[in-house]
Each structure stands twice: as structure tokens, then as C-alpha cells.
Simulated assay, not measured.
Amino acid sequence: MIFRPRPPSPLANLAAAGSVMLAVLVWLAPLWSGFDLFRQVWALIAIAALGLLALTLILRRWRPALICLAALVAISGPVAPEVARSITDNGRTPYPDAITTLTIATHNLWGRNEAANRAAAVLIEMDADVVALQEAFGESGDVTDRLRAVYPFEAECTRHSSRILSRLEIVESGCMQDLLIASRPAEYEWWRHQFPPSTWARIRLEDGTTAVVVSVHMTWPDPLSVQNEQRQNLAEQLRQFERNTMIVAGDFNAAAPSLALARMDRDFGLERRTRLLATWPSQGIGQRFGLGGFRLPTMFTGIDHVFAGEAWTTLSVERGPNTGSDHRPVMVRLWKVS
């Protein structure tokens, strides 16, 4: 038998080149913030690379297949630390006694949500002690009214749509922006004027101590310079409080393994408890545009997070069902030694 090598395949070679290009785009993130946007949608990049690898295998072109495989490994590199942390941070068992538990839910209601009844029902069924809301305005404004029957305490910032509802007593509350401006000297940098909509509340826990909870809605990462400025201001705002028992929850518009989210992990001084939990876009965005009967591929990125101080240990992290919003709600159960 005479061995005849398979002729080159332009399609397979093109697939290999495409895989390499995707890997390069992912790894260029440290050089320019625009490339970091590719890490924000890392799951889509990985799926595309996997599809290109499958194409070369179907065509039985082994050299392009090896190139695609190497590119896929390179694309997976930035998310490896997140995977490792998600395994080690999986729910822990609390001490047998003398503990305080707290369940917090966060949800971007979406101002164009037309299913206020469903959203309110889902949040009530989640049975959290504290609920952090974002975009609690427009067509989703009725959700807050329905939740007040279950959550008698409320904190809001009149200029923003971020709110906090609680079963536990709210001792004091206010706008994060006001808190920071009041503490700044007159000669402070005038250009740092971008503040994320955020509300804070000091909540009395069951053991008699208090913890500060913050509801935040960061802007989109494009233009990233605005989000960077919001992150810097929010980090400065958080330093106004004791962060050991602090909890910060909301829509941060940043997903792993982006450098934007890594900088939040670094600057907030808190531990992020939500890892590899896709929350956007939910089916609600399809329903809003008359696509309710068509199941769009959804939730390919996780931009809704809960950060907590070192006094808290994670018991569980859950993603809620579709509420008619373009986000899914997130619920985190925490405990601390009293």
C-alpha cells in the first residue's frame, strides 16, 4: 500500500488561524482595555474555539487540529484560577453552634421588565433576609411595592435606582456618593466624578452586631475608562466602613476572567463569593422583544456578584429562575461566628 498524505485543506487552515487569533485576543487584555472585552465574553470565545477544533477533526486534518487544540488550551488559561477557586470555595459546613447566618439576594430588575408579578414572587420565594435591587424603576418599579409586604425595612438613594430591602432592622442608610463627597478634601481630583449608583445600609444582625450592606450597579465596560473611574470611587467609598463584616452585592457588569473584575477583587478588599455563575442575558430579554416562545441561548456570562468581608463564610451560592429581567437573581447564604 502506498501512503499518500492528505492534501492541504484551506478550510482547516482557516479554522486553525481563527483559533490562534481568538487566543491572541484573549491574551492581549493586559495591553489594552478594549481587548479585555473579549474576556468578558470568554464563554463565547471558548465555544467558538471548540467549534473550530471540531471542524478540523471532521475534516481529518490533524496538524490544524493540533493547532486548534493548543489555541483552546491557551484560551482556557485565564479562567483556570477562577475554576480552581470555584472548587475550593464550594459550600462549607458551619460550626455546630454560636453562629449567625445571613442570606442575601441581589437582582437587577431591568427597567423594562414587564413581569413585575413574577419577579416579586421569585424574590419572595427565595426567602432572603436582605435583597439588593438594581434598576428598580420604570416597568419594574412595582416589584419594590410588592416586596414591602415581606421586607419592612428599606434603604434607597433618591437619585439612584439601587435599593436595599431587609427583614432585619436597618439602623442607618444613605447614598454612597454623598458619603464619599463629604469626606473628600476640597483639593481632591476634580475629574473623578463618575460614581456607580449605590445605596448602603447598616443592618442589625440576629446576634446584635451590625453589618454594612451595599447595593451597586456599575456601568458597562465600554467605555472602560468610565467603569474604571467608578471602580476607583467605589473602592474609596467602601473604605469609609469596617469591611470585616461588609457585604457588597449587585450588577458589576464585569465577568471572569476579565481584568476589570480582577481589579475589583483587588481594590474592594472583599472576597467575591460568586464564581463561574452565569447570570446574563436571561430569557427575559427575549420576552421583552416578543421572542418568548423562542428559546435563545442565554446566560453566557456572570456579571452579578456578591462580595463579603473575611468574617463571613460561604454556605451556598444559587442562581434564581427567569423573572422577566435580562438578569437572573443571585442568592448567597453566609455565616459567621457570633
Results as ranks from 00 to 15, higher is better:
A260L: 12
A308P: 02
A84W: 14
I303C: 05
I181K: 02
F153G: 01
I124F: 00
I2P: 09
H305C: 08
G320V: 10
R333P: 04
A70V: 15
A120N: 03
V213Q: 00
V79I: 15
F3I: 14
G320D: 02
Q283A: 08
P7Q: 08
R239L: 05
N253V: 12
A16K: 05
D89Y: 07
D97G: 03
D304N: 06
A120L: 07
S161F: 13
V122I: 15
P329D: 05
M1W: 11
L259Y: 14
G309V: 10
I2C: 01
V306Q: 01
T279L: 08
R148W: 04
I303V: 15
A308T: 10
P321V: 08
A155I: 11
V214C: 06
E310D: 14
S225W: 14
F38E: 02
M126D: 09
V122D: 03
L277D: 04
G286E: 01
E154F: 06
V130F: 10
A249D: 01
A115R: 14
F294E: 12
M331W: 04
T209P: 00
Q177I: 13
T144I: 14
P281Q: 04
T274S: 08
E271A: 06
I181S: 01
A43M: 12
L334Q: 04
V41P: 00
S316G: 02
V216S: 02
T199W: 08
I170R: 01
F35Y: 12
F35P: 11
L102I: 15
G174Y: 09
L53F: 11
S140T: 13
V212H: 03
L50D: 13
A149L: 10
L291M: 15
N244L: 12
V73P: 06
E236Y: 01
V330E: 12
A15D: 08
A254H: 04
H327D: 03
A43T: 15
P196C: 09
C175K: 06
R60F: 06
H107S: 10
R63V: 15
T279K: 03
I124N: 04
P281D: 13
R272V: 14
R39Y: 04
V330K: 00
S33N: 06
W220E: 13
P185W: 05
E318W: 01
S9H: 07
S325I: 12
W280L: 04
P7S: 05
A136K: 02
D178M: 03
I47S: 02
E187K: 05
Q287I: 13
L22C: 11
T313V: 13
E318A: 09
V330F: 07
W27A: 09
A15T: 13
A70S: 09
R146A: 13
V122T: 14
M218T: 10
V143M: 07
V171G: 00
P197G: 05
A105P: 01
V130T: 12
A149N: 08
Y151I: 12
E114H: 08
